[in-house]
Design a protein around this nucleic acid. Structure first.
Length: 109
DNA sequence: CAGCTGACTTATC
DNA sequence: TGATAAGCCAGCT
């Protein structure tokens, strides 16, 4: 079971890729699904390495539905544009109707 | 080589 | 009930 230790990043990428269209999830949700609910920081940090990959990091937000990582995107409101493009309402970097678009891997998977 | 920071979350005071 | 502290892993200085 130790071989899965370093796969934390890869796991995050896998989950992020599984996020359905028009849905979003939180770092903690992914972390919890991986068995490390308190390692949510690592999930966000993993997104740092998602650059150049097929990981829809724009679909991953914090527990409050706030686009905390939007600052890390190429432009400024790119993350919001992508979410709105999927039918998600985003105002002031905060997702509206979060409960509606929220996607929990622990429940859906 | 060693310590700090960071796209967060949960628990405690 | 609101604010503070600690925890986690990996990359970077």
């Amino acid at each position: 079971m130790k071989s899965e230790t370093l796969h934390f990043f890869d796991r995050v990428y896998e989950i992020a890729k599984l996020i359905p269209y028009g849905r979003v999830t939180s770092y903690g949700a992914i972390a919890k699904y991986l068995g490390a609910a308190r390692s949510s920081r690592v999930v966000g940090y993993a997104m740092n390495g998602s650059h150049g990959k097929d990981v829809p990091a724009h679909r991953v937000v914090n527990r409050k539905g706030l686009l905390t990582g939007k600052h890390h995107f190429d432009g400024t409101n790119l993350m919001q544009q992508l979410l709105e493009s999927e039918g998600i309402i985003v105002i002031e970097n905060q997702i509206q109707d979060l409960e509606t678009v929220y996607w929990d891997p622990s429940k859906e998977l």
